[in-house]
Amino acid sequence: MTVVFQTAAFAPALITIVNECKQPSTIVKSLMNYIEPHGHMVSRTTDDYERMALAGCQAICEPAFWAGFDRASADGFYDYFRQITEYEPKRAARFGIKHFSWLCINPKEAEDTKLAEEVIGLIPQFIDKPGVLGIGEIGLNKNSRNELRIFEQHVQVAQDYDQLVLIHTPHLEDKLKGTRLIVDALKNFPKIKPERVIIDHVEEHTIDHVLDQGFWAGITLYPESKCTPNRAIDMLEHRHAERIWMNSACDWGISDPLAVPKTMQVMRQRGWTAEMIQRVAYENPVAFMGQSGKFHL
């Protein structure tokens, strides 16, 4: 069995080894499985789906976000919502991966409030689709008044339709202020329960504020601008891995769709038990997204 613990990256070879040893393959699967709770697969190749499946990915959740450019009209978002709710699930299914999605207009495009309000108006017609988990990733980018207004309008939709909420926090020097503004704004929505909200892209200076208020926290493994595997594991150990998930946020930028299984490998090197690795990489995302009532694996 020790071989099985070594690396997710060689999952197929290991499954072969274990099958030859007549071990039940279900044991291997339960040790290798992970969920990618935040991936922008519209920007990734079909090869990436295959590599993720080989590494043990069981499900990918795709928040609506910026596509690397500003869309010219709400029609662009209508097609984007069709893409993430109808087309990507089919692409993922070819590799045995379940695909789920979240809906919104992201804060980078929210400075144009007229466009943003039109896009918010599109959400109800998609919200009952089987793979839609909630409203996200909403949040702030440059911490402007318009971004905040559109953020609050999204939270209102989540409250009206009893949806889970996935929140993007700003980058780099803007993250601390944005996280505080977001947490404060959520306090104006008493029906939004903190345990039904995940605040993503936390780092060492924001994670305690998020978790101490009862929210879930997401750690993003993104080269340069967010978090490395070792820093993610430091934070997980510090907070005993409770109410935290980790994700690659793989998108159109320099990012790694295998960041989660690679971090699982570093956890092994750092003495984590297989059970605790599974808790972070699989059970925690299931616990949070299972609250949607639609997250069936």
Binding site: K108, E111, N141, K142, N143, S144, R145, N146, E147, L148, P170, H171, L172, E173, D174, K175, L176, K177, R180, L181, E203, E204, H205
Partner: peptide
């Protein structure tokens, strides 16, 4: 991380750039 962070607490009037 705190030393690199914007310490202000009020939203800005308008976003004039998208990046950080």
């Amino acid at each position: 991380l705190l030393s690199f962070s914007d310490p202000s607490t009020e939203p800005i009037e308008k976003a004039t750039m998208q990046g950080a």
